[in-house]
Simulated scan of single mutants.
Amino acid sequence: MAIMSEIAKKSGLTTEPVAIVWSNTKPDHALEIRPGTWACLMWYYAKAALDGKVTALSRNSFGCSGGAMGIGFGRPFEKHSSGNEENFCCFLSNGREGSKDTDAYDSHLNGITNPHQKEMLEKGERIKKNPSVAKEFLNALPFYDVPTEYVLFKPLSSTDPDELIKSVIFLVNPDQLSVLSILANYHRGQITDGVVVAAGAAGCQAIGVCTYNEEHSDNPRAIVGLTDLMARKSVRRTLGSDKLTFSVPYSLFLEMEANVSGSILESELWIELMNGA
């Protein structure tokens, strides 16, 4: 039985909610990334949200090392152009400037033939102040090595409750972010703890491991993502410039769905806002 969302209907979403599913089966006609090819996983998320396409990701086909970490395929630093964890921390921060061994770093840079990769490693992404802070970030990022062969991006309406659904993702504008934030906190008296902004996390890490991790909490929270500038650049033309992701573990999704009736999603205020009044 397909899963349909009252949240999506009553919040006026223009795209399909997307589920991240752990699976040992690859669906027929699923999109795949060619092994060794770089790709931003948020583009494949967008294909599920907009076009109803299913993507099957595996340990041999995950787009980029940050993406592998984001969806739960461990920490394959050796498959990143940085080559190892220490250099990856430099890549996330200030590049060559932050390296403890600039001679070794230069030697690694000299072996890179792709000019864009070389420049990024030399200058760094600058999302963390220095490699030490980047290391703290990696330590804080939830670690998963998923027990299944595949991680799937699936339109929610193509899933079945018997599947192992780990994350449900809504693509929201500011008004929808507001109302879903209220709904995520509707059954609790919290103010600051019900919704988390995944600052500094890649787009796929926010909808993936950061959301998976909430499943283990007594009070699972929603994760606001797509705050990653590289991901925003990758999907801007596809999804628009005013969107963020709002992802929840499956248990919280079910609780929110059960709370739609009688909630703010049925209020005059929300209906007026949704209709542009």
Rank of each mutant, 00 (worst) to 15 (best):
F62A: 07
G124P: 02
S167E: 06
A49K: 09
K233Y: 08
D193G: 05
T148Q: 13
L239T: 13
V21H: 05
I264F: 14
K10P: 03
A46Q: 07
G262T: 04
R232D: 05
D242Y: 04
M69Q: 02
A104L: 14
E125C: 12
S217R: 10
L138P: 11
K129M: 03
N259Q: 12
A202R: 15
S251H: 02
L57E: 11
K128L: 03
H108T: 07
S267A: 06
A49F: 06
A201P: 00
R237G: 15
L13E: 13
G12V: 03
R221P: 01
H108Q: 10
Q176T: 06
I207S: 10
G70V: 01
A201W: 02
N173G: 13
E119Q: 06
Y212E: 04
R75M: 12
L226A: 05
V179E: 08
L31A: 12
F62V: 03
K79F: 13
A56C: 08
L252S: 10
A258V: 02
T102L: 13
A49P: 06
A258L: 03
K79V: 09
K166G: 09
I20S: 00
L41K: 08
F88I: 05
L156F: 04
D160T: 14
S58F: 05
S23K: 14
L254I: 12
P174N: 13
V260P: 14
F91K: 15
A39M: 12
E149G: 03
I191Q: 15
K10D: 05
A46G: 12
P115K: 11
A231C: 07
S157A: 09
E266G: 01
A30P: 07
M69N: 07
M256G: 01
F88W: 06
T245P: 03
L138C: 10
V209G: 01
E214Y: 01
A198S: 12
R34H: 10
T238W: 06
G52L: 06
S267I: 00
S251N: 12
N114K: 14
V197E: 02
I182Q: 14
S167A: 10
E119S: 10
N24Q: 09
D228W: 04
E268N: 00
A222R: 03
G240S: 07
H187F: 13
H216L: 04
E149P: 11
V248E: 00
K243L: 00
V197I: 10
A277S: 10
T37G: 05
P35Q: 11
E6T: 00
D106C: 04
V195Q: 14
N185H: 11
G194M: 09
N213I: 00
L109N: 10
V209H: 08
F253M: 06
T102C: 01
G63P: 08
C90Q: 14
Y45A: 01
I127Y: 05
N84E: 13
S263A: 02
F137L: 02
S234H: 10
Y105K: 11
T238S: 02
N275T: 00
A48E: 09
G63V: 06
E214I: 02
E97P: 14
G276E: 02
R34K: 15
E122M: 10
E257N: 04
N185E: 12
